[in-house]
């Protein structure tokens, strides 16, 4: 299977600040990949570059075999329909109910009849572990964990092939965080979705990630399975894995 995400020599600069100094890696389909790195190491920026929201200073990004930054607007729109994104703070539309939020991608991008949209919304709610009655709530009435779940349900609406998650478990209590992890794992296994997850959560990484990518000093520090990463001798990685013992 060809890689679904290919990143080649990405450089990003904001003014005089060099965020990425040449990052190269690729992600195989059907895997759950975790991207870790210190705060400010450019994880969110990289994510935005991959999904075509922010142009890197130089370098090439291929998503599902298509060059993101060489695509026409129309191609990019079609490509975006094949990916789902969960933003760091949920980014639910505050003027729509939860149900309308989940239905929004279906209503905007397809012409499926309304009663089927309703059925699919109900399925998405249940899949994300939410009660059906949540559909009528407004985003402002949700707790942090519920917001993340609704955002996940919305990200899943168009049956994406790749799911991008920016810190999905930050702000959740450990129990809910683990539930969320196993939910994502189930989706990844049963739907064959590739999951690309930016995270700080050591537990997510140890329990569900197939592969870990470590970003630091504007470069790719390491990439591999948990065991391989543990074996890498780099001060930040060492600190990262021993932080659990310290706390």
């Amino acid at each position: 299977m060809p890689p679904v995400i290919e990143i080649q020599d990405i450089k990003t600069r904001f003014g005089s600040q060099e965020v990425h100094k040449g990052v190269t890696f690729s992600v195989e389909g059907g895997q759950l990949v975790a991207l870790i790195g210190g705060s400010g190491s450019g994880k969110s920026v990289l994510l935005k570059e991959i999904i075509g929201l922010l142009r890197p200073t130089s370098g090439r990004i291929r998503l599902l075999g298509q060059d993101v930054w060489k695509s026409s607007d129309d191609q990019l729109r079609k490509l975006r329909n094949r990916i789902g994104v969960l933003f760091q703070n949920g980014a639910l539309f505050s003027s729509l109910t939860v149900g309308e939020n989940i239905a929004a991608p279906l209503r905007e991008q397809t012409s499926i009849p309304e009663e089927l949209i309703c059925a699919i919304v109900q399925l998405r709610l249940a899949m994300s572990g939410l009660k059906q009655s949540t559909a009528r709530k407004m985003p402002s009435e949700l707790s942090g964990g519920m917001t993340k779940r609704v955002a996940l349900a919305r990200a899943l609406a168009l049956e994406p092939e790749i799911l991008f998650l920016d810190e999905p478990t930050s702000g959740l209590d450990p129990i809910n965080a683990r539930r969320f992890d196993s939910l994502v794992r189930t989706l990844c296994d049963s739907l064959g979705i590739t999951v690309f997850m930016v995270t700080h959560d050591l537990d997510s990484i140890t329990s569900v990630a197939d592969e870990i990518i470590v970003l630091g000093d504007g470069k790719l520090l390491a990439k591999g399975s948990l065991e391989e990463i543990r074996g890498v001798d780099h001060p930040w990685i060492n600190d990262y894995f021993s932080s659990r013992l310290a706390s």
Binding site: C118, A126, Q132, A135, D189, S190
Partner: peptide, 21 residues
Amino acid sequence: PEHSSITKLVRENLAVPDPIE
């Protein structure tokens, strides 16, 4: 076999349809 997990996921999550107001 490659479809069974998908059908299972839906089967498990078939929501009792909510009376739509």
